[in-house]
Design a protein around this nucleic acid. Sequence first.
DNA 1: GACACGTGGAC
DNA 2: TGTCCAAGTGT
Length: 359
Amino acid sequence: MSLPEFDSVQLRHSLLSWYTQTGRNLPWRNSRDPYQIWISEIMLQQTQVKTVIPYYQRWLETFPTVKDLAEADLQAVLKVWQGLGYYARARNLHACAQQIVQQYDGVFPNQLEAALSLPGIGRTTAGGVLSAAYNLPVSILDGNVKRVLARLRALSVPPAKSLKSLWEWSDSLLDPDHPREFNQAIMDLGAMVCTPKAPNCSECPWKRHCQAYLLNLQSEIPMREISAPLPHKMIGVAVIWNQQGQILIDKRPAKGLLGGLWEFPGGKLEAGETLEECIKREIQEELAIEIEVKDHLITIEHAYTHFKVTLNVYHCRYMSGEPQPLECDEIRWVTLDEIEQFPFPKANEKIIAALKNNS
DNA sequence: GACACGTGGAC
DNA sequence: TGTCCAAGTGT
């Protein structure tokens, strides 16, 4: 079900003409260095351009080359990534850099199969890097392209239900003579004109070809998936002080949610339990120590992708026992001055800020 | 194919 | 305040 070749030629021409006049000037577009382009593609996964730009610049100052990244400590990598979310991206970036140094002499591979075998590199990121760095004709299907193509063809189901067709349309539309510009252009079209809400159809170079526009369905397409309400968890969190004025923090297991980041220990409130009981129980289960729960410090509401939490944070006093890393990777006693060297998730950063305000 | 995986901006 | 969703990948 590819587009007629005649349409593809017209669509390519009108899009590239629009892009030449209107396309964005973004930092990574001034580079053809596959390392810099790869970093930008990973940071841009599920993350807005405005958010990425300062992280991108700081990253390249800290890790200017693949080799610098490969030789860095994972904790240092996570610290630079801190706040961007989806931390598996940072862990994969680090592992991927080491693989590129070992297997590809420090140069991002210029073959699709090799790129796809690397950790954190899926089909869209591979297409993004290979087209932008090497001008190779590899298509992409990110959120922008999905929305543009769903509207162009008036797709009657949510994009996730029709990925095969969308990939075929992206493949057949890609300009084989200008793959670098075409992929950037179709993403700019989605970001600047064919936006999720209130698209600027009057400015669109594809308005005469767009089935959604011609049927006045641009507000209904792409179709939404029905989503269940997010579960909510009440969490008790302990800021445990010892007699030296140090605080106990723990490093989360390397994989899974917030893997490799540090946190204040705590856990889920169970039915019929007070927050004080919850905190004492969790600290005994996780660290095998006795504490006394003292004053309330702060309450934090935070939403993750698949659930919401309320963090009820309390000052606590260390009483007895030798802390054991029973459910974490590592434990440390740190001062308030030392704590900022460690990567923390956003919700925990708010706890640190509250501690600094009160001291 | 469905679900896990962070955070911030827009409305 | 709540909901959507942003240059997706791994399992």
